[in-house]
């Protein structure tokens, strides 16, 4: 049962990431390859604050979210001027830079050694320690993020995001300053990614730069493509599927040394099939 709670906790963390990216990519139509960078900023910020300053998890998470949103604001000012392929390339570049900083700023991040011994959250005197407790703790955040995303996507703000996705110029002629909307959704998504990062670091109790590489961003993109772009429920299902699939492959009888490679192949084949036969994903309203 502990194993099940472990998987559902990871699924919840990735679902938070997928919901955030879905706001940017699914609803607004901006192909961001930078999501893992904000995930990493949240994780590193809260881990460093908890370890070096002895901060409470919630305060550290809050500051991590603020830092991530602040960085997103600065980067977003540049990214919002691009669209299409240029947006994707510029965001990818940002993810590479953040990875480089995590890897090379050793005084702060311990570089490739990573940060071990990250503390667990405390509710009063009680430390959230068991997998079951941590699952419910993560689930609580997932529900909050899900409801927030639902609120956003059903509001006039969400309608504007869809308008940007469909025809940004047509929207501008009605008086919309679309740059601000693109910037706002990017910052919100970065905040959500930082929440996931803080939860991940505290759950696994160890982070290193390799967790936040560009491939991680691509995996989150794959999750929302599978679940369906512009659908919050699809993002959750896509994330769950991607976390559970490797576990199912464990039981497929592959030798352990080739199992990891087989998983990558299965992911790749799945994505190709999806693009060919259901490009809008399982529940999506929009296709790339």
């Amino acid at each position: 049962m502990d194993y099940i709670f472990h998987l559902t906790t990871l699924s919840s963390i990735f679902a938070i990431l997928a919901i955030g990216l879905n706001l940017v990519m699914g609803y607004t139509g901006l192909l961001s390859v930078a999501h893992a960078a904000f995930y990493g900023i949240g994780a590193y910020a809260s881990a460093i604050l908890m370890r070096s300053q002895g901060m409470n998890f919630f305060v550290a998470m809050g500051l991590g979210v603020l830092l991530s949103m602040g960085v997103a604001l600065l980067i977003g000012l540049v990214l919002s001027r691009f669209d299409g392929d240029y947006y994707a390339l510029a965001s990818l570049g940002f993810n590479v830079i953040v990875f480089g900083i995590m890897l090379n700023w050793e005084e702060l991040t311990r570089g490739p050694l990573g940060i071990p011994g990250i503390g667990k959250p405390k509710l009063g005197d009680h430390t959230i320690f068991s997998n079951m407790e941590y699952f419910f703790f993560t689930l609580f955040f997932l529900i909050i993020i899900y409801l927030l995303a639902r609120l956003i996507t059903r509001s006039s703000f969400g309608r504007t995001l869809k308008g940007i996705r469909e025809d940004e110029t047509a929207l501008q002629v009605f008086g919309y300053k679309t740059v601000y909307f693109k910037l706002a959704v990017f910052v919100i998504a970065a905040g959500m990614a930082a929440v996931a990062g803080s939860l991940y670091g505290s759950y696994i109790t160890y982070i290193d730069p390799k967790t936040f590489i560009v491939m991680e961003s691509i995996m989150i993109i794959s999750m929302i493509i599978l679940g369906g772009l512009a659908n919050n429920r699809g993002a959750v299902i896509g994330a769950t599927f991607f976390v559970l699939l490797p576990e199912l492959l464990r039981f497929a009888g592959f030798p352990p040394d080739i199992a990891a490679h087989m998983r990558q192949i299965v992911y790749g084949v799945l994505l190709i099939l999806l693009m060919m036969y259901r490009p809008q994903g399982l529940f999506g309203e929009y296709k790339l």
């Binding site: 006039s156 309608r159 504007t160 869809k162 308008g163 996705r165 469909e166 025809d167 047509a170 929207l171 009605f174 008086g175 919309y176 512009a230 309203e285 929009y286």
Partner: peptide, 15 residues
């Protein structure tokens, strides 16, 4: 805006 309703399109026009 094909993925928005008729009324939502009109609301956008009145932004």
């Amino acid at each position: 805006f094909t993925h928005l309703s008729v009324e939502e399109n009109l609301e956008i026009g009145g932004y």
